[in-house]
C-alpha cells in the first residue's frame, strides 16, 4: 500500500515537469512571434507617413518612399489572382465533385501535395525557363504572375476542395432532384454555399504569394524603375524584393526606410492573411450544417 502513493506522486511530478517543458515550447513560439511583430511595429511604424507611402524612392534608395514598390506588388498579386483563381477553383471542384476514386485521382492529390512542397526558388527556375525564355514573355509582370500562379495553385485548390466538402451532400441531392444538371447544382448551390471558405483560402494563398521573393527575383522584379509598369510585359518593383535590396544590396540606407518597408510588407501580407484565417474559422463555426 505504501508503494502506490509514492509512484503516483512521482508520476504527478513528472507530469508537472513535462507540462512546464512543453509549455515553455509554446511560450517560446508565442514569444518569438510577438518579438517579430513587436520589433517590426516598433521600428517600422515611425517611418510610415503618407509621404513614404506615396512617393518614389530617391537618392539611390536612401531617401523617398515606396509608392512604385507597393503598386508593383499590387499589380503582381492582382494578375496572379486573375490567373490562379479560375484554375484553382475549377481544380478544387474537380476534386470535390467530379473526381472518381481511382489511381488517377490519387496521383492528382499527390501532385498537389508535392507542388505545395516544391521550393519557391525552383518555381523561379521553372518560370525563368518556361515563361521568361521559352514563351518570350521576358522578365515581366506576366512571367512572374504565371510563376506565382503555379506556386499558389495548391493552396487555392486545397482550400476550395475543403470548402466544397463542408457543403452537405443533401444540398447537392436537393438540386439534382429538382432536375438540375450536375454543373448547375454546383454552380448555383454548392459554390455559393462554399464561397466564404474559397475566398478566405484564396486570400491566404495570394498573400503568401505577395510575400515571395525568390521566384520573382529571377522572373521579373526590378531593382529600381523610374516609371510604373505600363503593361503586363513590363518589369516591376516589389515589396519583398525591395526589402531584400534595402537590407543587403544598398549600403547606408536609413533604418526607418528599411523597417518601414518591412512594416508595410508584414502589414499587407501577414495581417491580411491572418484576418482571412480568423474569418474562416469564425465562418466554420457559424454555419450550422
Amino acid at each position: 500500500m505504501s508503494v502506490r502513493p509514492t509512484r503516483a506522486r512521482r508520476a504527478r511530478l513528472v507530469e508537472a515537469i513535462m507540462k512546464v517543458v512543453t509549455g515553455a515550447c509554446v511560450a517560446l513560439v508565442i514569444g518569438t512571434a510577438l518579438f517579430v511583430l513587436g520589433k517590426i511595429v516598433a521600428a517600422g511604424l515611425p517611418g510610415i507617413s503618407l509621404d513614404f507611402l506615396f512617393s518614389k524612392p530617391g537618392m539611390g534608395m536612401r531617401a523617398g518612399g515606396i509608392f512604385p514598390v507597393i503598386v508593383g506588388t499590387l499589380m503582381l498579386v492582382a494578375l496572379t489572382a486573375v490567373l490562379v483563381l479560375p484554375l484553382g477553383i475549377m481544380a478544387g471542384i474537380y476534386l470535390a465533385e467530379y473526381a472518381p476514386r481511382n489511381l488517377l485521382t490519387r496521383i492528382v492529390r499527390l501532385s498537389i501535395a508535392n507542388m505545395a512542397g516544391v521550393p519557391s526558388i525552383v518555381y523561379g527556375l521553372f518560370g525563368l525557363a518556361v515563361f521568361v525564355l521559352l514563351m518570350h514573355f521576358g522578365k515581366s509582370l506576366l512571367a512572374s504572375a504565371l510563376t506565382l500562379t503555379c506556386l499558389t495553385l495548391p493552396v487555392v485548390i486545397t482550400s476550395t476542395e475543403e470548402a466544397l466538402r463542408q457543403v452537405p451532400t443533401d444540398l447537392r441531392q436537393a438540386a439534382l432532384a429538382l432536375g438540375a444538371t450536375r454543373w448547375r447544382a454546383i454552380y448555383k448551390v454548392v459554390l455559393p454555399a462554399a464561397a466564404p471558405g474559397i475566398v478566405t483560402g484564396s486570400i491566404l494563398g495570394l498573400s503568401r504569394a505577395a510575400g515571395e521573393t525568390a521566384p520573382i527575383l529571377v522572373t521579373g522584379a526590378a531593382f529600381f524603375l523610374p516609371t510604373l509598369p505600363n503593361s503586363v510585359f513590363s518589369q516591376y518593383m516589389s515589396l519583398p524584393y525591395h526589402l531584400y535590396v534595402l537590407a543587403t544590396q544598398v549600403p547606408n540606407v536609413p533604418p526607418e526606410i528599411t523597417w518601414g518597408t518591412a512594416f508595410v510588407l508584414v502589414a499587407g501580407v501577414s495581417v491580411v492573411s491572418m484576418i482571412a484565417a480568423a474569418w474562416r474559422s469564425v465562418q466554420r463555426r457559424k454555419v450550422k450544417w
Binding site: V29, T32, V36, L204, S207, R208, A247, T258, A262, V266
Partner: peptide, 16 residues
C-alpha cells in the same frame, strides 16, 4: 500566432 508566423514572408525573417 502560428498563422501569423506562417504568413510572415521569408525575406522579413531574413531581414530580422
Amino acid at each position: 500566432v502560428i498563422e501569423f508566423m506562417a504568413a510572415v514572408p521569408s525575406v522579413v525573417y531574413g531581414f530580422l
